[in-house]
Amino acid sequence: MMITLRKLPLAVAVAAGVMSAQAMAVDFHGYARSGIGWTGSGGEQQCFQTTGAQSKYRLGNECETYAELKLGQEVWKEGDKSFYFDTNVAYSVAQQNDWEATDPAFREANVQGKNLIEWLPGSTIWAGKRFYQRHDVHMIDFYYWDISGPGAGLENIDVGFGKLSLAATRSSEAGGSSSFASNNIYDYTNETANDVFDVRLAQMEINPGGTLELGVDYGRANLRDNYRLVDGASKDGWLFTAEHTQSVLKGFNKFVVQYATDSMTSQGKGLSQGSGVAFDNEKFAYNINNNGHMLRILDHGAISMGDNWDMMYVGMYQDINWDNDNGTKWWTVGIRPMYKWTPIMSTVMEIGYDNVESQRTGDKNNQYKITLAQQWQAGDSIWSRPAIRVFATYAKWDEKWGYDYTGNADNNANFGKAVPADFNGGSFGRGDSDEWTFGAQMEIWW
């Protein structure tokens, strides 16, 4: 008995050590931004985005507190085989008060198993909700290839000249389909599951310092038995992507060409959309029709120009041509140079221009935006974070068209359509004006 009692403290210590080691193995990653800002004409900070554009130049032009908190852990490992559990909870508030209630979004919860298939060394099996191989332009917060959501897949299969990845994910639309009631009355209240099937071939070395990635995505509306879509709904579509990445000037340049059809055009990033119906009456549900095509040509990157200068840049042309004439032509160009006074202090400027032409009206909206920021960051790279910055932003815009969301679809035949700025004596778009804002912001990723 005495021997047992003497061994007990040692056993407890060993158990505590094991539990401590396991606790220390938890990975904590994430992203956050928050700050305070004012508008020159009075009131809180207002942000500037061109009507019809899918993004905006973000430096000194973000008006919310946003965070993603990721917890993950390698829960099992034997040799080169392992299982990893990953989670991500995100939230966004308007940064107007101390207490701002919000419903967090559970954006990731997945398990990734590496090297589980003997004859596919280096590959990963995964299932669950996941940010899946996302491609974006940081300076405009624009995701041009992103099929994230609940799904499953097999990735990084070594095929000799590259890595092959296969995945299936889902994005549902509210009110996407109906069941038959009586007297030809349909009640569009059932969600429609939109499935996306993704095939990618990446890391193909085609020139010194250059790699090529090719991808095909097929999206479709997956209806339940005895349900139907509204007439004209976009049932399926394709997205084709080619991306060349070149190492240059201690950074990279990415050149991207994408072509999409029908349900893959509205978001243009790989998620299927077009079966959703915002109104019970299918007579007024025309606005979900996105049959047509999209072409996107994009070049972006980040480079170092000597010891003291870094720069991000982007140039993009996007043409969404829809059968219902509600598409757009959008082109944007911008730069973000950074001058480093010390390894932790810099001055950053961002200059961006957007131009969006309405397919329906032929009119154009444009905006110039310039931001000057003094910044303190954890390192001497344009990617170094955390960063604390004080900024001043000036924007000038001239908008000739907007979307008509007055009333509702039952009493407005133009609901959701592009109209000229002065349509029917109204005021659509943001008109011709300018404004400036100033404030302070922190940004961090880890």
Rank of each mutant, 00 (worst) to 15 (best):
87 T>A: 03
205 E>G: 07
262 D>A: 04
159 V>G: 15
34 S>F: 06
437 T>P: 13
346 S>G: 00
435 E>A: 14
96 Q>L: 15
196 V>D: 10
26 V>D: 05
252 F>S: 00
438 F>C: 15
95 Q>R: 01
280 D>N: 07
89 V>A: 14
107 R>H: 02
229 L>P: 03
324 N>S: 02
321 N>T: 06
121 P>S: 05
326 N>K: 07
17 G>D: 02
214 L>P: 00
294 M>K: 00
305 M>V: 00
38 W>R: 04
267 Q>K: 11
414 N>T: 10
327 G>A: 11
153 G>S: 00
365 N>H: 14
195 D>A: 05
12 V>D: 10
331 W>L: 04
250 K>N: 13
424 N>D: 12
427 S>N: 09
210 G>S: 02
40 G>A: 07
279 F>V: 14
9 P>T: 09
266 S>T: 08
274 G>D: 00
57 Y>S: 15
332 T>P: 07
266 S>A: 10
269 K>E: 05
96 Q>E: 09
398 D>V: 07
216 V>G: 09
62 E>Q: 15
40 G>V: 09
152 A>D: 14
127 A>V: 06
214 L>M: 05
21 A>S: 09
268 G>R: 03
382 I>T: 06
165 S>Y: 13
38 W>L: 06
325 D>G: 10
110 N>T: 13
416 G>C: 11
133 Q>H: 08
63 C>G: 14
263 S>L: 00
208 P>L: 00
383 W>R: 06
403 Y>D: 11
265 T>S: 07
228 R>P: 01
33 R>H: 02
378 A>D: 06
338 M>T: 05
438 F>L: 11
304 S>F: 01
141 D>A: 11
367 Q>H: 07
328 T>N: 13
311 M>I: 06
397 W>L: 07
156 N>Y: 15
126 W>C: 12
94 A>S: 09
120 L>R: 13
235 K>I: 04
253 N>S: 05
241 T>A: 09
140 I>T: 15
312 M>I: 11
258 Q>R: 00
422 D>Y: 12
128 G>C: 11
159 V>F: 13
338 M>K: 11
46 Q>R: 04
33 R>C: 02
192 T>I: 04
410 D>V: 14
223 L>F: 12
286 Y>F: 15
318 Q>L: 00
53 A>S: 12
77 K>R: 09
99 W>L: 12
446 W>R: 15
346 S>I: 02
261 T>N: 13
131 F>V: 11
179 S>Y: 09
173 E>K: 00
47 C>G: 11
202 A>T: 06
210 G>V: 11
253 N>D: 01
216 V>I: 03
387 A>S: 12
29 H>N: 02
417 K>R: 07
301 G>C: 06
81 K>R: 15
395 A>S: 06
375 Q>H: 11
195 D>N: 04
65 T>N: 13
333 V>I: 03
145 W>R: 15
241 T>P: 08
27 D>G: 03
401 W>L: 06
99 W>S: 13
390 V>I: 03
22 Q>K: 05
339 Y>H: 02
256 V>F: 12
252 F>L: 03
408 N>I: 12
67 A>S: 11
239 L>V: 07
419 V>I: 09
322 W>L: 10
385 R>H: 03
97 N>I: 07
383 W>L: 13
105 A>T: 06
274 G>S: 01
87 T>N: 06
81 K>T: 09
123 S>Y: 11
113 G>S: 12
11 A>S: 12
351 I>V: 02
105 A>V: 08
54 Q>R: 01
230 V>F: 07
60 G>V: 15
175 G>R: 01
225 D>G: 02
233 A>P: 07
31 Y>C: 09
430 R>L: 10
354 D>E: 09
399 E>G: 02
64 E>A: 15
105 A>D: 15
86 D>E: 08
153 G>C: 11
440 A>V: 05
28 F>V: 10
98 D>G: 14
99 W>C: 13
445 W>L: 15
215 G>R: 11
419 V>G: 15
161 F>V: 15
331 W>R: 03
17 G>A: 10
240 F>S: 01
51 T>I: 05
4 T>A: 14
187 D>G: 00
85 F>I: 02
136 D>E: 13
79 G>R: 14
314 V>A: 01
435 E>V: 01
199 V>M: 03
235 K>E: 08
232 G>C: 09
272 S>A: 06
246 Q>L: 12
24 M>I: 05
389 R>S: 05
191 E>K: 02
52 G>D: 00
226 N>S: 07
255 F>C: 14
353 Y>S: 14
380 D>Y: 14
381 S>I: 07
72 G>A: 15
406 T>I: 02
308 N>D: 02
339 Y>F: 05
103 D>A: 12
188 Y>H: 03
289 N>K: 07
